[in-house]
Design a protein around this nucleic acid. Structure first.
Length: 451
RNA sequence: GGCAAGGUGGCAGAGUGGUUAUGCAGCGGCCUGCAAAGCCGUGGACGUCGGUUCGAUUCCGAUCCUUGCCUCCA
């Protein structure tokens, strides 16, 4: 199967060819664990989860998604709460993992912690200093951007544009405004580690370079993350890694997912419009959230609103509705069309349309046997997207309703119907609907689902 | 201002140099005690202006508009 990916580096869709024809390495930037994850934090994991599922069919995949448990925002959060830093990082790591599991995201092969790789980072800094790509200044170590001619190649930024993005101006401690920090001193309560340059902590770009190298080697097949990480984060990762090696690229394919807007405004800290996964899950079933992500191609922005949620739920109704009367179906091999859609730069909207094509065939099938065969393909295909993981009955009946009461009323209604007392039957229908459940009379008898 | 992406039918959202996207919603019909689900049929689209072409929503140029990145961010 030919897999194509849009490479942010070349700004074009390319045929995916791994370094090793049998093995693939993928590194995706994970969360900084200092608060509850919002839905924007979940889009990437869901998309790369779909990509991982596809890649695992073809290759021996090693997928790493790191946990950033070393960051000033974490120290701030711990300080605000008056608790130990590890309490904050462990709590939010656990919450993040729970939320991802809820959304059907399979675990990566490894979730390394930044704090467990300080020696690797120090080693990389030392190499950069030895190679004259970095310099020490007053307890800090800076990467010297002018020593790397290609700096800016990934994000396609000129020197002037790079400067406009720096916060700290050239000063007595920095030679060049573009230089970024590799190591900085820690004082007071701020955590730190001993290093050749004094007690301190690493800069925020370094962990990915160090951990990617340790576990996956010098050049990754795929490096992923949100599009807002392209600059400066990924640009700086490239600079560090390439200069500490011999100029080999950090990754052959750079894959970036788009952002989520909320009422057409980007969801971000500065906008104060973060929608937490945890809060959303109180109202919406997790599979609906996943469906909402897959509705739009991963590189485009998603506008998050009630219509998206309701549409996504209805799509799942149609998928599950097609297999509802078929009993237990085990997943089969996915359809070629669905596979090809995902292989074409993770075109999940196209893949969904292929799923609906199968649904149509199931609904038109002439025999139960044919339906079941198609349903098996449908479920196998949906699993590639991480959908349809539960029984159709559970999808429709799922909920906090009083099943016993509804079943009782249904029995009563059936009795009324068989006596052709339709007035009573409709009355009971009203009663049941007031409980938030609707009835569908089918050839096998009535079934119900949540409104 | 610089860089990047995009403007598709009522909404969401793929795709294509000439042929039905798909889902939801609408309309007509079948089915049903009534419904629902499902099925059949149906209307409605490619921002604007030029160019290339036998033919462009699809390629090229211009223009208007939108959005993102350039500061923490996924």
């Amino acid at each position: 199967m030919k897999i194509k990916l849009y490479n942010s580096n070349t700004k074009s869709k390319e045929l995916f060819v791994p370094i090793d024809p049998k093995k693939v390495t993928m590194y995706v930037c994970g969360p900084t664990v200092y608060s509850y994850p919002h839905i924007g934090n979940a889009r990437g994991p869901v998309i790369f989860d779909v990509l991982a599922r596809l890649l695992r069919r073809e290759f021996d995949l090693t997928y790493i998604r790191n946990i950033t448990d070393l960051d000033d925002k974490i120290y701030q959060a711990a300080d605000d709460e008056g608790v130990h830093i590890s309490e904050v990082t462990q709590r939010y790591t656990k919450i993040y993992q729970e939320d991802m599991t809820a959304l059907g995201v399979e675990k990566p092969d490894l979730e390394p912690l930044a704090t467990e790789h300080i020696p690797e980072m120090i080693e990389m800094i030392q190499v950069l200093i030895d190679k004259k790509h970095a310099y020490e200044s007053q307890g800090h170590v800076f990467f010297s951007v002018e020593t790397f001619d290609d700096y800016g190649f990934l994000s396609n930024r000129t020197e002037e544009e790079q400067i406009s993005g720096t916060r700290i101006k050239s000063s007595e401690i920095k030679n060049n405004q573009r230089d970024f920090v590799l190591w900085k001193p820690s004082t007071g309560e701020t955590p730190g580690w001993d290093s050749p340059w004094g007690f301190g902590r690493p800069g925020w770009h370094l962990e990915c370079s160090a951990m990617a190298k340790k576990y996956l080697g010098r050049t990754l097949d795929i490096h992923g993350g949100g599009s807002d990480l392209l600059f400066p984060h990924h640009e700086n990762e490239c600079a560090q890694s390439m200069c500490s090696h011999s100029g080999e690229p950090l990754a052959n394919y750079w894959v970036h997912n788009g952002m989520i807007d909320f009422d057409n405004v980007k969801m971000s800290k500065s906008e104060g419009n973060l929608l937490l996964i945890r809060d959303l899950l109180k109202e919406i079933r997790p599979e609906v959230i996943r469906m909402a992500f897959l509705t739009t191609h991963y590189r485009k922005p998603i506008n998050w609103n009630d219509a998206l949620i309701s549409d996504s739920g209805k799509k799942l109704d149609r998928l599950y509705g097609s297999i509802r009367q078929l009993g237990k179906i085990s997943p089969g091999e996915p359809s070629e069309e669905v596979l090809n859609a995902i292989a074409d730069d993770i075109n999940t909207p196209k893949a969904l349309s292929e799923l609906f094509a199968i649904v149509k065939n199931i609904n038109n099938a002439k025999s139960d046997e044919e339906s079941r065969k198609l349903a098996s393909i449908l479920i196998g295909s949906a699993h590639l997207l991480g959908l349809m993981n539960q029984d159709a009955e559970i999808w429709f009946e799922n909920i906090e309703v009083d099943k016993a009461l509804i079943d009782h009323l249904l029995t009563e209604r059936e009795a009324a119907r068989s006596n052709r007392n339709f007035e009573r039957a409709d009355q009971i229908r009203q009663e049941i609907e007031s409980l938030g459940v609707t009835i569908e009379d089918g050839p096998e008898g009535p079934v119900w689902k949540k409104l």
